[in-house]
Design a protein around this nucleic acid. Structure first.
Lengths: 145, 145
DNA sequence: CATTCTCCGATCAAATTACTAGGCAATTGA
DNA sequence: TCAATTGCCTAGTAATTTGATCGGAGAATG
């Protein structure tokens, strides 16, 4: 019931990209340094985010990644669903030949899914960034160096 | 982001036990038949539920398991937390020397945890049972045989 | 006193997750 | 124009977690 590393790393990377938006392209190598993440792993995650339409990229010298649109228009839930594969525990519609236990599990899964979707779909990247800045306080400068 | 089999089986078993409460002890073997679950695996789950204080057991011939108190007094969230190990994605309190990405992840985790806890802590076993009965309809009798 | 059960530790296979290697293909700056 | 740079992509491996089984020990029952 917690986020996978893949999801966590992806979120960390896209938060960094949101901080820098709409500046120039940022290379995956720099992102992995800033957040101290395994480079090759991060690359594959960034690729997934690009395919999901959240990032745009540029190959070659001076290339890198940046958000494809404003942080205000990117919903955290969308990002996480793309990375997590199955955020929703939602099974298919309630099967007819189920034991009481199965029905109960189905019910619980649905309530859980609904609630997490609601929470995550109510946060955009820039709101998240605002919160981070509130909590950040003193130690942010080092990431601008 | 979905329940593990262990949790699912435990929930299915305890729902069955709630249906039968406060009748006599039910053996793990019968439970695994009713819900079609691997017997030995279920045994270890029932043991965890007993240690969690949700069930009481009786060894020897004629023994088995039953709820330790009324389904009305058993909260689904408590049960799931016992089984899942880490339902809460909650990491320790917000660390001071974190990157923006880490803070963001921390924030998201907390919101997620808070929301799932709220949902699960608002359902008791007997409410869950009510819902199951609404959805059950026709095919319940077979489980009484 | 034999049968019926829970209790319990160890172990194992399969699946999933986390991560790395290595090369091609585009782009660019010198 | 060409070498350096950087994303793109496939495949594979290491580590961890999950789902389950085995083989009993020991308590109650009838």
């Amino acid at each position: 019931m917690r986020l996978s590393k893949r999801t966590e790393y992806g979120l960390r990377a896209i938060v960094q990209l949101a901080r820098l938006w709409p500046a120039h392209y940022v290379q995956s190598r720099d992102l992995s340094k800033q957040e101290n993440l395994p480079n090759k792993f991060l690359e594959s995650i960034l690729l997934a985010l690009r395919r999901g339409g959240f990032l745009e990229s540029k190959v070659g010298s001076g290339g890198g990644y940046r958000l494809s649109r404003s942080p205000r228009e990117i919903v955290v839930g969308d990002v996480l669903r793309r990375l997590e594969g199955r955020l929703s525990a939602r099974d298919g519609e309630s099967p007819r030949d189920s034991s009481p236990g199965e029905i109960a599990v189905h019910l619980v899964n649905n309530r859980l899914t609904e609630s997490t979707d609601t929470v995550l779909d109510s946060i955009t990247l820039d709101e998240l960034l605002d919160e981070v800045n509130k909590h950040g306080g003193s130690q942010q400068e080092m990431y601008y160096i």
